[in-house]
Simulated assay, not measured.
Amino acid sequence: MQRLWMNIEGRIQELCIPADTDEVMPGVRWGASDEVFTPSFWKYQSEARSHHDRNGQHRLGDTLLEEIAVCLLGGYGIPAEMGMLAFERLRERGLLSGRATEEQVLASLVEPFTVASGERRYRFAAQKASYLSRSLGVAKNLDVNLQPRDLRDSLLTLPGIGPKTASWIVRNHLDADDVAIIDVHLHRACVMMNVFEPKSDPAREYFKLEDLFLRFAQAIRVRASLLDAIIWDFMRRIGPTARPAKQSAQLSLAF
């Protein structure tokens, strides 16, 4: 048994987890609590952050259409901060109702964005304007009362929306724990823990990998939506060169 401690609003709380040699699931050991990227490490991060109410709210938009928009505007090749800037501009201009034309959306996306370092342009503006205008035009008629996986199935029929984006929308909008966002960050973390095989490919095996991740989250008794968000946030901050290394679990709370 490993005994850890967390400072929760000035009160020290104990967290007990299995020994580092015990298995979380076949082939996956808990690992030492002071070693980053182990199941013990992610369990500690999840418990500590849940008490501090960090990563507890996933919604980025106020409606399903807005959630579709913000997730479509983010994703691969687009920094999260730039995706949010684009989303806020389109929302402020009333272009997320499902009635805006592709030309209207494109005109707003190609206009430079002012950031602290100067002006920046949104990548893939033409492609995203096409996806967004067409997807929102159909999505305004979707049943918003569907169960998470049923809603995801509906979203998968929309232009530009694949399993990852659809899962992202559903996780955010419904606070769902039966879907997962298998992106490059989460995939890298799960390979490090031996939850995923190194040669596994989310593009070809998305739902198989999602099932493995959901089983892992259940095994360490952490909500999948919370664990997904924590791993994404941590891994994107430290970059793709991350490798397992002995570090203080307390130090990691700075990320």
Rank of each mutant, 00 (worst) to 15 (best):
Gly160Ser: 07
Val138Phe: 10
Asp143Gly: 09
Ile8Tyr: 02
Pro240Val: 00
Ser167Asn: 11
Gly75Met: 11
Gly56Gln: 12
Pro39Thr: 10
Phe234Met: 03
Ala139Gly: 06
Ala139Val: 05
Arg221Asn: 14
Asn7Arg: 06
Val138Glu: 14
Gln2Ala: 05
Glu14Pro: 00
Asn172Asp: 14
Ala32Met: 06
Ser46Trp: 04
Asp150Glu: 15
Ile169Leu: 07
Leu90Pro: 07
Leu96Gly: 09
Ala139Leu: 03
Phe207Asp: 12
Thr114Asp: 11
Asp175Tyr: 02
Trp42Ile: 04
Val170Met: 10
Asp22Cys: 13
Val110Met: 08
Ile78Tyr: 03
Val70Met: 09
Asp143Phe: 04
Ala166Tyr: 05
Asp143Ala: 06
Ala224Cys: 03
Gln247Lys: 10
Val179Ile: 08
Ile161Asp: 01
Ala249Asn: 08
His173Ile: 03
Arg221Glu: 15
Leu60Gln: 15
Val138Thr: 14
Leu142Arg: 10
Thr165Ser: 04
Ala176Asp: 12
Glu23His: 12
Gly75Ala: 05
Val222Phe: 04
Arg188Asn: 09
Leu4Ala: 13
Lys199Pro: 00
Asp233Glu: 10
Gly77Thr: 04
Arg120Ser: 05
Met6Thr: 06
Ala69Val: 07
Gly94Cys: 04
Lys208Asn: 04
Ser133Leu: 05
Pro18Ala: 11
Asp20Cys: 12
Arg149Gly: 02
Leu15Cys: 03
